[in-house]
């Protein structure tokens, strides 16, 4: 008899917990939905072709995101170009070559910590090293180097995870044929981990795409009337353009900001979508 009562109590608690968890989930979704509805209702009317093709202007209805968009794409392109090879190489070294000793563990913990450092710290670092000491000024290059530092830990961690997931039996098969470590890494490990590596890189880009603080520090918060033509030109990016607009008093600029946010969200959504698609495709193709 005693046992039965206990079971019933546990069942009630179980139900209560389920509804509580549901409530929490619902709350999160509700906030997100409200935010999205607010942004979309404000900004969707502003999105048309001229919004994408216009240069920034003093008049809100003539103002567009052309320079910010080009600036953002070039910045991200350069960031990936810098962070991807270095991050992947570092991960390969740590995972395949480095000995597993105390020093390696310290490095590992530090990389994980670096991924959690507030981004504005990277901005300050970039300002000193790239903008001032290296003398790149408020250029795309300085911004890209700063963002590359920011996403490097994410690329390294993701690449290491992808490499770790490659079963050892494949390495053994390759070594058994007389392949060297580099031949094994290049011909077997990297191709097998490539889907995971790319997923990590894309996710890191979708992190970088929304970064504003470090770019403000390295000098992207400037009025740039023309599109950048080289890596040493001045630039601005979409999040900064949005930041800029939201600090204006006129309602028209707020509408512009909302429209900019929609575009930015669409970009992030797209990148994450590609990452998920890649991961699924890779999982289906490579079942170890």
């Amino acid at each position: 008899m005693i046992k039965r009562i206990k079971t019933n109590k546990a069942r009630i608690k179980d139900q209560l917990f389920k509804y509580f968890a549901m409530l929490c989930t619902g709350l999160c979704l509700l906030v997100l939905a409200l935010l999205l509805i607010d942004i979309i209702s404000k900004g969707i009317g502003r999105i048309n072709w001229s919004f994408f093709s216009n240069l920034p202007s003093r008049h809100f209805d003539e103002s567009g995101i052309y320079t910010a968009l080009i600036g953002m794409v070039s910045l991200l392109f350069l960031t990936v170009l810098i962070a991807m090879p270095i991050g992947i190489m570092a991960a390969i070294y740590l995972q395949e070559y480095g000995t597993k000793n105390r020093f390696a563990r310290i490095v590992e913990i530090n990389i994980a910590n670096l991924a959690g450092v507030p981004s504005v710290i990277y901005g300050i670092l970039g300002l000193q090293i790239f903008v001032r000491i290296a003398g790149f000024g408020n250029s795309i290059l300085a911004g890209a180097l700063t963002l590359a530092l920011l996403i490097m830990p994410i690329v390294i961690v993701a690449t290491r995870e992808a490499i770790k997931a490659v079963p050892n039996s494949l390495r053994e098969a390759s070594f058994g044929m007389g392949a060297t470590k580099w031949q094994t890494t290049r011909n077997v490990v990297i191709p097998a981990a490539w889907g995971g590596i790319l997923t990590g890189v894309i996710l890191s880009v979708s992190r970088a795409i929304g970064e504003t603080a470090p770019l403000i520090v390295v000098g992207a918060l400037v009025y740039v009337p023309f599109i950048p033509e080289g890596p040493l030109d001045q630039y601005t990016t979409l999040p900064i353009q949005i930041f800029n607009w939201t600090s204006r008093p006129q309602q028209g600029f707020i509408t512009n900001a909302a429209a900019g946010i929609i575009v930015l969200l669409a970009f992030t959504f797209l990148l994450n979508g590609i990452a998920i698609w890649l991961r699924n495709r890779w999982n289906n193709k490579v079942k170890f």
């Binding site: 079963p167 039996s169 098969a173 058994g176």
Partner: peptide, 20 residues
């Protein structure tokens, strides 16, 4: 060791074809 392994074939417990 690499040259040496080239002259010996090995087959493992679990089939381990490359994902190629």
């Amino acid at each position: 060791v690499y040259e040496h392994r080239k002259s010996i074939g090995m087959v493992f417990q679990k089939p381990n074809p490359f994902p190629k």
